[in-house]
Every structure is written in C-alpha cells, then in structure tokens.
C-alpha cells in the first residue's frame, strides 16, 4: 500500500462523507471543523507515527490530502 493510499484510508476512517482525494480547500471552504481536524491529526499519528505540533496547524497544511502528505514527509525527514 502506498503512503497516499494509507493516508486516504486513515482519512476515510475519520469521515467517509468527505472526498479527501479531490477536495483542495478543506479548511478554507469549512469542509472540516476543529473536531475533524483534531481527529485527522490522531489518525495521521496512528498511521504514520508522526505527531504534528500546534505550530503546523495552518490551513495550507490541511487544505488537501496532498498537503497533509507533504507535511507527514516533512516530519519523517526531520526524524
């Protein structure tokens, strides 16, 4: 399973109604609220073992699944 698929699977577990693969303004358009955002962070932590810190809770990091994967890679590089 690729990282992309792993992320989409984790995100679908959080909310299956949201089209994470294609949406690109999840925060800006209000598709995800603060509850969903904190759950996404918990799901990313479960799937990839990285703990996102509050300083990275910026819309540009969570507006799309691609942006989230980039953020995950940044954390993995730092490890």
């Amino acid at each position: 399973m690729t990282d992309w698929e792993k992320l989409l699977e984790a995100l679908a577990e959080v909310d299956e109604d949201i089209d994470f693969a294609n949406e690109c303004a999840l925060i800006d358009d209000g598709v995800i609220d603060s509850l969903t955002l904190t759950q996404i962070i918990a799901a990313i932590n479960d799937a990839f073992g990285v703990r996102i810190v509050t300083g990275d809770l910026e819309p540009e990091n969570f507006n799309s699944a691609q942006a989230m994967l980039k953020l995950v890679y940044r954390y993995q590089e730092r490890k």
Binding site: S34, I41, A42, N45, R51, I52, T54, L57
Partner: peptide
C-alpha cells in the same frame, strides 16, 4: 488551548 491540549502527547 484546545489544539495544544488535544494533540499533545498526552491527548493522543
């Protein structure tokens, strides 16, 4: 407050 506490090590 909400974000730092919820996504802290303890919160997770």
């Amino acid at each position: 407050l909400l974000y730092p506490l919820t996504i802290s090590k303890m919160g997770l």
